[in-house]
C-alpha cells in the first residue's frame, strides 16, 4: 500500500499526513509541479493553506499540474482523501459535491470533536462500525459545508454523507452537521476534521487511524 501526499506551497499538514499514512503503509510526498503519481495506490490532499488561501481556499491549488493527474486518477476509480484544505481543493476541483464556506462564528476554530460514522461502507470507513464515534481534532476558518437542499437529500439517499459532527459539536455551521462527504462512486472522500492528527494516544487519540486502516483494507495491501 503506497500513499502519495500532495505538497503545495502553503501546505501545513503534509508531514502529519505522511506520518499517519506511514503507520499503515508506505507514504511519499508528491510535489505540486510534478506530474508523476509515483505508482501510489491512494492520494491524500493534505491540510494547510495552499497558495495562502488566496482567491478562495483551494481555488488555486486545484489548477496545479499534479492535481490534473489526481483528477484523472480519481476518474479512474483511484482512492483520494482530502483533509481540511484538501477537502476544499477537491470541492474546487469538482471531484466532490458542495463547497466550504467561512465558519458561522467567522473565526478560525480549533477543537477536538466527535465524528459520527454515518456511512461505514465506504473505502475510507470500512474499518468503522455504523454510528461509531471518532475523537478527532478539527481546526479551520472555512469549514461550513454547503450544498443545495435537494442535492443534500440526494447525497443522503446515496450514502454520500460519510461523517457528521456528533450532536452539539458542529461549531462551523455546516449543513446538517456534515463533516465529510464522498463522491457518487465512493472513491473520493473529503472531510474538514483531521484524522491524521488522531493516530497516537500520546498526542490525543488513535481514532483517526481507522480512516487510514480502511483505505489500506480497500486497496488490499493492508498491514493491519
Amino acid at each position: 500500500m503506497k500513499f502519495g501526499v500532495l505538497q503545495f506551497p502553503g501546505s501545513c499538514d503534509e508531514a502529519d499526513a505522511q506520518l499517519a499514512a506511514g503507520r499503515v503503509g508506505e507514504a511519499v510526498l508528491l510535489w505540486h509541479r510534478d506530474r508523476d503519481l509515483a505508482g501510489c495506490d491512494a492520494i491524500i490532499v493534505p491540510g494547510g493553506f495552499s497558495y495562502g488561501d488566496y482567491l478562495r481556499a483551494g481555488a488555486i491549488a486545484r489548477f496545479s499540474p499534479m492535481m490534473e493527474e489526481v483528477i484523472a486518477f480519481a476518474r479512474d476509480g483511484g482512492l483520494v482523501l482530502g483533509i481540511c484544505n484538501g477537502f476544499q481543493v477537491l470541492c474546487e476541483a469538482g471531484l466532490l459535491p458542495g463547497a466550504l464556506l467561512q465558519n458561522t462564528n467567522r473565526r478560525f476554530t480549533s477543537r477536538q470533536v466527535h465524528l459520527e460514522v454515518v456511512s461505514p461502507d465506504t473505502p475510507f470507513t470500512r474499518a468503522c462500525a455504523p454510528g461509531e464515534l471518532l475523537s478527532v481534532p478539527a481546526k479551520h476558518g472555512s469549514g461550513r459545508y454547503y450544498a443545495p437542499d435537494d442535492q443534500l437529500d440526494a447525497m443522503e439517499a446515496a450514502g454520500q454523507i460519510v461523517v457528521r459532527y456528533a450532536p452539539g459539536e458542529c461549531f462551523n455551521g455546516s449543513a446538517r452537521d456534515i463533516a465529510g462527504v464522498c463522491n457518487e462512486a465512493g472513491n473520493v472522500f473529503g472531510l474538514m476534521p483531521h484524522p491524521e492528527h488522531a493516530v497516537d494516544a500520546l498526542t490525543g487519540s488513535t481514532d483517526g487511524l481507522r480512516i487510514f486502516e480502511s483505505m489500506a483494507l480497500a486497496a488490499g495491501g493492508a498491514h493491519v
Binding site: C12, D13, A15, D16, L19, G47, R107, F108, T109, S110, R111, P137, K139, H194, E196, H197, D200, L202, T203, G204
Partner: peptide, 12 residues
C-alpha cells in the same frame, strides 16, 4: 481555540 496547537504532531 483560535490557534492550531497540534500541527506537526508533536504536541503532547
Amino acid at each position: 481555540e483560535q490557534y492550531d496547537s497540534i500541527v506537526q504532531s508533536r504536541t503532547v
